[in-house]
Amino acid sequence: MKNLEVNLCGVKLDNPVVPASGTFGFGLEMADVYDINVLGAISIKGTTRDPRFGNPTPRIAECEAGMINSVGLQNPGVDAVIAEEIPELRKVYRKPIIANVSGFGIDEYVECCSKMDKVDDVDIIEVNVSCPNVHNGGMAFGTSCEAAAEVTREVKAVTHKPVFVKLSPNVTDIVSIARAVEDAGADGITLINTLLGMRIDTARRRPVIANKMGGFSGRAVFPVALRMVYQVANACQVPVMGCGGVATASDVIEMMMAGATAVQVGAENLRNPFACKEIIEALPAEMERLGIDSLSDIIGIVK
């Protein structure tokens, strides 16, 4: 019997597989097609203080082994997420919920996190300082050590739940940002968000995406994500949720060997809605193949 359990700041996950925010809605679409209680946890769609329509369409472009999105934080606003989406999810899902929060100013992050902190059904708060698709917000807070630390500090002052800060890979030195948020009190770090990218429709001579640029994700980014998880896990004491290009059970184990305690699956959910379930089902055989009895034994085993 293989042991897939991991522990994220006291929150027990049956397995390390977590659908990444923005690639699983609020969980209900997939609950219609399989039992989502097989998941380790769910990171729900990024939430802001006010409802947002998001960016104009087209929002999606395809790449070799990946894709670019510029959704722009479409969500019904924190109050609706708390009043409607989380209770609906709770009706069909008993496992941990990670609330992903974004903002356009420190006060907005504080307000959203403060509200999420009071929701019993939320186990972990994931603070997104890395959305590349909105102006004057999101990634602006994740590309400077001072701003990332300030968001973390202010949010931690109003929360009692574990706070994971989700970092952007679009920085010169990921380790300095990670250390800054750890020093500011982050209980954990999620990385990576998407890489800023672009495609051009050469026949029409214009960007494929209406907002011109967007976040690049999918299998192609896996080595970049793995490298950053490795660097941050070795530089910080807090647990890391690894994210970026994960598509197989083998990828999950590789991320964990690099230092991830849990592993998020993002873009793969868009091409295969059953991806998380299939990965979880494949994990025991892959552990057997590699001589692993307990997944928590391999976290950060590669130095």
């Binding site: 690639t23 999606i60 999105n69």
Partner: peptide
């Protein structure tokens, strides 16, 4: 018709007003 990401409602790629 709209350019889609997932086709299953999870990515919000094809939203209309």
């Amino acid at each position: 018709e709209e350019r889609m990401g997932c086709g299953t409602g999870i990515c919000m790629g094809c939203t209309c007003k």
